[in-house]
């Protein structure tokens, strides 16, 4: 039996799955899939190219967040960054704050280097677990950025109060910085301190944008359909509530 109050949620979920499958089938045969330009993701190549030219490392971190959706979205970006670093022979340093995230990032980077035919360039000592206490993690990242003089600092995932501390250190060492998070309290800090910032859903679209995989593009389209539905419900709900009807509010509570 369905839980009370979950029917509306289930309806949105089913709609998202159905539209995801529909758009996957639609885009599976298309060679060019329409997706709007995300400047923050385009500049990742520029950041890695800059690091390669300067002979300095690229630094990547997923923030203080645990294994949440933002972190999984960040894994897709890490895979792309690791592949590009392997391709251009740029050194990649990954620092982790969560012990559960650490082995996954190591796996991703190792696989990316192997897929690019450079398994010898992979150094497990460059994938570092620092600390699961916030300020110790920050000081560890500071140390890495200052000592290694990183040329690019890519911060993708779920961030807390460490966001500005990390971004300002990156700025101090002259790193080109790209950040992305869905954590709304931290977004203003990234916008103020980084060169480019992926805001909210842009981070979740990163995997689709970078790989152009039809399955992922289908999922992004499903997300857009749900977003349109939410916008329509907000507009309709505002009008209905203004004229004194609580029908829609009751429908959403089902």
């Amino acid at each position: 039996m369905l839980r009370a109050g979950s029917i509306a949620d289930l309806t949105v979920l089913v709609l998202m799955i159905a539209s995801g499958i529909y758009y996957y089938r639609k885009f599976a045969s298309d060679k060019v899939v329409p997706i709007r330009r995300i400047r923050g993701l385009d500049t990742i190549d520029e950041a890695i190219g800059r690091a390669t030219e300067m002979g300095r490392p690229v630094h990547f971190t997923t923030g203080f967040g645990d294994l949440v959706a933002d972190t999984f979205a960040a894994f897709a970006v890490l895979d792309y960054v690791a592949r590009q670093c392997a391709r251009y022979n740029a050194r990649l340093i990954v620092s982790n704050s969560q012990p559960v995230v650490h082995p996954i990032t190591e796996n991703i980077v190792k696989t990316a280097y192997t897929m690019e035919g450079r398994p010898d360039s992979f150094k497990s000592s460059d994938i570092r677990y620092l600390s699961d206490t916030q300020q110790a993690y920050v000081s560890g990242v500071w140390g890495i950025m200052e000592r290694e003089k990183v040329a690019a600092n890519i911060m993708m995932g779920y961030f807390f109060a460490e966001s500005l501390l990390l971004a300002e250190c990156g700025n101090r060492v002259g790193a080109f910085q790209v950040a992305g998070t869905a954590s709304t309290p931290q977004l203003p800090f990234f916008v103020a301190a980084c060169d480019y910032t992926l805001i909210g859903e842009e981070l979740f679209a990163a995997g689709a944008y970078l790989t152009r995989d039809p399955v992922r593009i289908g999922a992004i389209m499903a997300q857009d359909i749900a977003k349109l539905l939410v916008i329509a419900l907000i507009a309709l709900g505002a009008v209905m509530y203004t004229v004194g009807s609580t029908f829609l509010a009751g429908l959403c509570d089902l």
């Binding site: 998202m16 999984f72 709304t184 979740f204 499903a222």
Partner: peptide
Amino acid sequence: ITIGGALGAVTVGLRVILGLERGGTGMS
């Protein structure tokens, strides 16, 4: 931003459950 992010998180969650987001498996 929060609504967009929440829908994005649902999409990523579904992709992880369905094995389409393979970050944790060691596959590319």
